[in-house]
């Protein structure tokens, strides 16, 4: 399956992309409070999310399966370089491996969404940025839903659902890191003081793979439909 994608990119689009990258950088850097010598796991999670989002914006959409895999693997390479450059402590394989797997799966999901977007709306469509912004919003669910949770005290099920929905949880579970009780989140969101359970790594992985499979099936069907329509049109003319 090969997608036909034009290679031009406008300057305004680049500027918008870089603005989005900056936004992600500011948001994730902010959760690392300068008051604490934040743990290695916390830094790595922030780096992984930042790199994955940046890659989503800057890498061209995949045209086939090998490009899709290459685009999804790219953030892991950047994550390795960043961790070597900026983290003084030794990053154990026990942390780095599961984080890499989660980064790969999350990138695969975003890249699949990008592929689908290209096929349906075309490359220059604003839908990529919307996906990006939606992803940032979902990542920051515990932050912007915090005041609502504080006031309305929803059920434990609802709290667990919010926690399950955010990729921050997925990355944290991968490295066994209790991010909701880290300094910034504890001081700025109510979740750390409420009863909740982090989901299991298997459940998270299964959900991601299920969504990715659904997206790929939709992509395959849409592409086939477009090809068939084009063929019919050609035959008719």
């Amino acid at each position: 399956m090969t997608l036909h994608i034009p290679h031009t990119r406008k300057t305004s689009e680049w500027i918008l992309h870089w603005f989005c990258v900056l936004l992600a950088g500011i948001i994730f850097a902010y959760t690392l409070s300068p008051d604490s010598l934040s743990s290695t796991a916390h830094r790595l999670i922030n780096y992984a999310l930042f790199i994955t989002l940046t890659s989503y914006l800057l890498l061209p959409p995949a045209r086939n399966l090998s490009q899709l895999l290459a685009n999804s693997l790219a953030p892991i390479v950047s994550l390795f370089i960043l961790s070597q450059l900026f983290i003084t402590q030794t990053v154990s394989l026990k942390i780095f491996l599961p984080l890499s797997v989660m980064t790969f799966i999350f990138s695969l999901l975003l890249c699949s969404l990008k592929q689908l977007n290209v096929v349906i709306y075309g490359k220059s469509s604003i839908s990529h940025k919307l996906v990006y912004l939606l992803t940032v919003i979902v990542i920051l669910l515990p932050v912007w839903l915090g005041p609502w949770v504080d006031v309305y005290q929803p059920s434990i099920k609802m709290i667990n659902s919010i926690i399950f929905a955010t990729p921050l949880t997925h990355f944290s579970v991968a490295v066994q890191y209790d991010y909701l009780r880290s300094l910034w989140f504890y001081q700025n969101t109510p979740f750390g003081s409420l009863p909740f359970t982090y989901p299991g790594l298997m459940a998270i992985t299964f959900n991601y793979l299920l969504i990715i499979c659904c997206l790929q099936i939709i992509l395959w069907r849409v592409t086939r439909h477009i090809k068939n329509s084009a063929l019919k049109e050609k035959v008719q003319t």
Binding site: D35, S36, L37, S38, S39, A41, H42, Q176, Y177, D178, Y179, R181, S182, L183, Y186
Partner: peptide, 21 residues
Amino acid sequence: QKGYAADHKFYGGIGYGGDER
């Protein structure tokens, strides 16, 4: 041992065990 000097405001403290706070 964890990189916290004696003058750091968190020196000597113990947290939940999932983060250095």
